[in-house]
Amino acid sequence: MTAPRILVAGETLVDFLPERVGPLTEVESFDRRSGGAPANVAVALARLGHTPWFWTRVGDDPFGEFLTATLDEEGLPPRFVERDPDAQTTLAFVTHDADADRSFSFYRDGTADTRMEPGRVPDETLESVESVVCGGVTLAAGRSRDATLDLLARAQDHDCTVWFDPNYRPELWPDDDFAAVVGDALADVDVLKATEEELDLLGLSGDSPEALAEAALDEGPHTVLMTRGSEGSVAIAAPEAPWDAERAEHPGYEVDPVDATGAGDAFLAGSVAATADGETELTAVLAYANAVAAVATTAAGAMAALPSGTDVGAFRNSAS
C-alpha cells in the first residue's frame, strides 16, 4: 500500500440508531452502527480513494472489537488504532425528528477516546503526510484535549495543512469551555469547517454568517468552509489561501434525506479529498463536498451511508 498522505485523528464510537423517529423515551429498539466524526471522515476518505492514517483509541471490550474490525474492513491501516485495556468504548444513542435531524445522548465518562496521549504520532509520520484532520470532540475532556492540541501544533511545525471541525455537541462541553478551548486551537488550524451556530458559539463578532466566517480568519485559519444543511455551503478565504477565489458558494443538491447523521463528516472528507486530488477552484471543492454529503444522507447510519467515489460521480451526473 502506498503510504497515506493524510492523517485523521479523533474518536471512534458506537452509534445506536433508533427504530423510529421521536424522543429517546419512546424508542424501544436500536440498530448498532460504527461512528464518531473522525472515524466517519477516515472511512469516507478511504472510500473516496484517499485511505488515511487514523489515530484513535477504543476500549478493549466487545464494542472496541466491533469498531476495530469495521476499520479493518474499510482498509484503514491499524498502526495508530489503539486499544485501551482500562477503559470502555464510547456509546452514543441517536434520536431523529421528522426532518431526519438528530440529537445525541453520550455515554463517555472516562472512556477510551478521552485517554489519548500526546506524542503517539511520531514526527516522521507528520513529515510524510500533507494533511492532518481533527475534530473538536477530543478537545472536550480528558488527556485527549492535550493530545489533540499537541498534534495540531506539531502538524503546523511540519507544514501540514490542518483541517478542523469543531463538531459541537452541547452534551459534552461544560460551561463556557468550548469557546475558550476551540478558540485556542484555531491558532494551529488552516481550514475550519463549521456551522453558523458553531461560529457564533466561538464568540466571534459579525452581523451575518459570512461576517462571522471572516472574523474566524483572524483567529488563525486561512479558509472557513461554512455548511448550511440543505442550503449548501459557503467558503470564505484569506488572500494567501491556496484557492482561485476568496469567496465561493454552492447551493447543494436536492435529496430525500433518511438520516443526516454524518453529513458534515462526509462534507469534510469530500473537501479534503478534492484538495488531495489537486483541486484549487474553491467552488469546485464545495460542489464535490456537497455531493458527498448529499449522498450520505440517503441511507441510515453515519458510516454505513458514506459513498464511494463512483457513487458520488454517478450522483453528480444524475443531478446535472
Rank of each mutant, 00 (worst) to 15 (best):
P62R: 08
R83G: 07
D61Y: 01
D84E: 10
F66I: 01
D60V: 07
G75M: 13
E74D: 10
D97S: 03
P77S: 12
R79F: 03
R57N: 10
E74L: 06
A100I: 00
F80C: 13
R79W: 06
A92W: 03
F63A: 11
V94A: 12
F104K: 12
L67Q: 01
R57H: 09
D109W: 06
A98F: 01
A87V: 03
D109E: 15
P85G: 11
G64W: 02
L76P: 11
E74V: 01
A87H: 05
G110V: 04
D99F: 04
R108H: 06
Q88A: 14
E73Q: 12
R57W: 09
A87Y: 04
P62D: 08
T70I: 07
T89Q: 06
T114W: 04
H96I: 00
D99Y: 05
P85I: 10
S103Y: 02
F66E: 03
A92Q: 02
P77F: 02
D72V: 11
H96R: 14
G110A: 02
E82L: 14
T114E: 06
V58M: 02
T90F: 11
D60T: 14
D113H: 11
R102Q: 13
T68Y: 03
T90Q: 11
D101A: 08
T111W: 10
A92G: 08
F63V: 05
T89S: 12
D72R: 15
F80R: 13
Y107W: 14
A98Q: 08
G59R: 08
A69S: 15
S105W: 08
R108C: 09
G110Y: 00
E74T: 06
Q88P: 00
F106E: 12
F63C: 13
D101P: 03
T68E: 10
Q88D: 14
D60C: 14
F104S: 11
L67A: 01
D113W: 03
F66H: 05
T89G: 05
P62T: 01
V58E: 02
T68K: 07
E74A: 15
D109K: 14
T111D: 11
F93G: 02
D99A: 15
V94K: 09
P78M: 12
V58F: 04
D86T: 06
A69E: 15
S105D: 07
F93C: 11
D113A: 09
E74K: 05
G75D: 14
F104P: 13
P85H: 04
V58K: 07
G59S: 08
D84L: 05
T111M: 10
P62F: 07
A92E: 04
D101G: 00
D113K: 13
E65G: 15
L76A: 09
D109C: 00
F80K: 10
A92Y: 02
S103M: 08
A69L: 05
L91P: 04
A87E: 05
D97T: 03
D97H: 02
G110Q: 03
A87F: 08
G75C: 09
R57D: 09
R57E: 14
P77M: 12
D60G: 13
D61Q: 10
T114F: 01
R102D: 08
R83C: 09
D61H: 09
T70E: 13
P62Q: 11
E74Q: 15
L91K: 05
G75Q: 13
D72N: 06
D101Q: 11
D97M: 03
E65L: 07
T70K: 15
V94D: 14
E74R: 07
S105V: 15
P78S: 12
